[in-house]
Design a protein around this nucleic acid. Sequence first.
RNA 1: GGGGAGAUUCCAGAGCGGUCAAAUGGGGCAGACUGUAAAUCUGUUGGCGCAGCCUUCGGAGGUUCGAAUCCUCCUCUCCCCA
Length: 376
Amino acid sequence: MKFTIKSSDKNSNARTGVLQTGHGEIETPIFMPVGTAGAVKAVQIPDLSNDTKAQIILGNTYHLYLRPGLKIIEAAGGLHKFNGWQKPILTDSGGYQVYSLANTRKLTENGVVFRSHIDGSKHEFTPENVMNIQRTIGADIIMAFDECTPYPCEYNYAKNSLGITHRWLDRCIKQFDNTEAKYGHEQMLFPIVQGSTYKDLRLKSAEFIASKNAKGNAIGGLSVGEPHEMMYEMTEIVCGVLPKDKPRYLMGVGTPENILESIALGIDMFDCVMPTRNARHGIIYTSEGIINIKNEKWKNDFSMLDANGTSYVDRQYSKAYVRHLFAANEILGGMITSLHNLAFYLWLVGEAKNKIISGDFSNWKNVMVTKLSSRI
RNA sequence: GGGGAGAUUCCAGAGCGGUCAAAUGGGGCAGACUGUAAAUCUGUUGGCGCAGCCUUCGGAGGUUCGAAUCCUCCUCUCCCCA
């Protein structure tokens, strides 16, 4: 289990590396498709693996704990065996649900009591049982239990929350160290930097997290509605403190533009629901910009979905056809666009890696960023 | 041949004298979405020189201060009985 830096960009903090896990190596920078409930929505495992070139996917502690539940996952032999994905898996701890399901939970020093969004039943998540749950799910990388603070966030709230997240981290580490992996492969625990949009809190948090000497470190609490500049500023501050020889994971980010900018700041790992969720809503990302395939202007456009795309769906289907699928509410539409978007995101980080290695990253990034965010 | 029901804005379908440019669905058009309560949600959907005005509720007349709503005739649909 180790992370090796392979090359570094001269004009930015971008770097490439290889992270070894119990299910193989991950080449960074990398984008990790989100598979909350044990499935990357609308995408089959062979396509995910062979077509998008995904190297690692996410699962979610809260969602998997509620459904199908730990008994079934354990009986299956862990999530890898259950869903058939044999490459690395990272599970989020439920910290994001502390934010996204704020209406149905109660947070205390001990943990969080969630009211199930499925049946209303109460479930307490503590740093200890969140470690146990992730042991049972069997992810290669597991996340510390934290509170993802909202934006905007009062300073005092952010400061108190940060204290809780840090104390929870110590409890997570203790529990993690006192328990063992269940399925014969090693697991690693990533702590999470919080501190909302306050420089001093971010700095303090990054120093605290760095002091734990974890195998990898994450930055959370960003991309929750704050301006992009603020997100980059916080990321830069934190990257200045987190150890250089360990992978840095920027949680929940982001747009193609966000990803390239963050790679330049020294981020190695990303995850985001945008490529999959937006795909199901008709948005596709391409190297030339963003397309809303539902728009009337594609009605008679029989050109391939993305002439520059790397996925087989890009050449297999036309824009007009995919638009038709969305108009007709055919499930295939969302499957095609999901596959396309993931292949594009993976292509993007792969290309970033190539450019870092060849020394052309910064110029390439600057050209790409304006194209990527434009609307076609 | 006899009896009955009905024609409403793209479609279906409310409205049954003023608060109606007209409910609600659907369809159309557009937008949002960042560690997924999301195949979801939001806006908009007669025209214009747009806090107002103009033209709309099958057609033509009429009653009324005022009509999609009441009356007369016409046109056309649908249903039942022979």
